[in-house]
Write a protein that binds this DNA or RNA. Sequence first.
DNA 1: ATTTTTTAGCTATTATATGCCAACTTAAGT
DNA 2: ACTTAAGTTGGCATATAATAGCTAAAAAAT
Lengths: 161, 161
Amino acid sequence: MPNRMQLDKIDLRILAVLQQDSSVTNQELADQVGLSPSPCLRRVKALEESGLIRGSVTLLNQNMLGLRLTAFIQISMDRHTPDRFEVFEREVMALPQVKSCSLVTGQSADYLLEVVVEDMDHYQELLLGKLTRIEGVTGVHSSFLLRRIVDRTSLPLEHLI
Amino acid sequence: MPNRMQLDKIDLRILAVLQQDSSVTNQELADQVGLSPSPCLRRVKALEESGLIRGSVTLLNQNMLGLRLTAFIQISMDRHTPDRFEVFEREVMALPQVKSCSLVTGQSADYLLEVVVEDMDHYQELLLGKLTRIEGVTGVHSSFLLRRIVDRTSLPLEHLI
DNA sequence: ATTTTTTAGCTATTATATGCCAACTTAAGT
DNA sequence: ACTTAAGTTGGCATATAATAGCTAAAAAAT
């Protein structure tokens, strides 16, 4: 359903700016992309309308919220049946500590999760109290984040033109 | 350096709303958290000032941009020396396809990357043309995303109060 | 209980968004 | 080459929202 639409250089510049900072005023944005405010706003609205712009969110400082531990968890399931997946996914979606959960290819694991918690105690509680209790979960392997090198919400646009 | 500040229930509600949608007007936000516009705006500004609010960004539709393939790459290095890391990290930061890159604990890998590309051809080009050519990279293991179950930019706030 | 400090809410002002219309550009058709 | 039509821009007027200053109320401290 979501197919590619025609985007010119100005659209791409608009998207590039907004991906970095959605709080720019329409006037500033218009300046930066070389348009006057009204056509600029029209384009932004059209991009929203089309679904290409999904929305805008505020990003918070993880450390200042006391969330000092980020973990990557690989989880494998006993059987690859729809009901196993359904149960697991429903449980995982309900956990606010889960930043992402993906079904992935690969021999060693079915799901890859990124979770965010206060400390090891809370991690243990999440892992042993919640995740490993979900039926079908057989294997779990954790890695912990030591340092972030890249953490982007923006998508590349270089391939378009 | 960034330490926890005092947040009351209203602050948390403000953060919860903005994490989901930063495009709400201050008036709507004030309504939702049960304040009048001016104290609400004051609080938002204070949260920005403190650094707890990092900023706002616009999220785009990955599929509609023709970015159909998401891969998770585990990379191991030959030696764990500062200069090895420096070179690797500098190269990786320059690649717009890299959504995240983290130095992680664990036996099998040093770095975990999430990358976004158009298709397998472009993935191959990125992996063989760029990543494996960085000096010090010895092992690479790729998994591909089949389906996203959770993809959040929001952090949990439940642990505060 | 009184003082001090903090926080809310109102109002006036400024800035910004938004809709409308005319002018311009582009592309296609004759 | 000229004309027509479609689409896009820029400017202006209006509506909406953000912002600062001030007063009142609430909360905290003594």
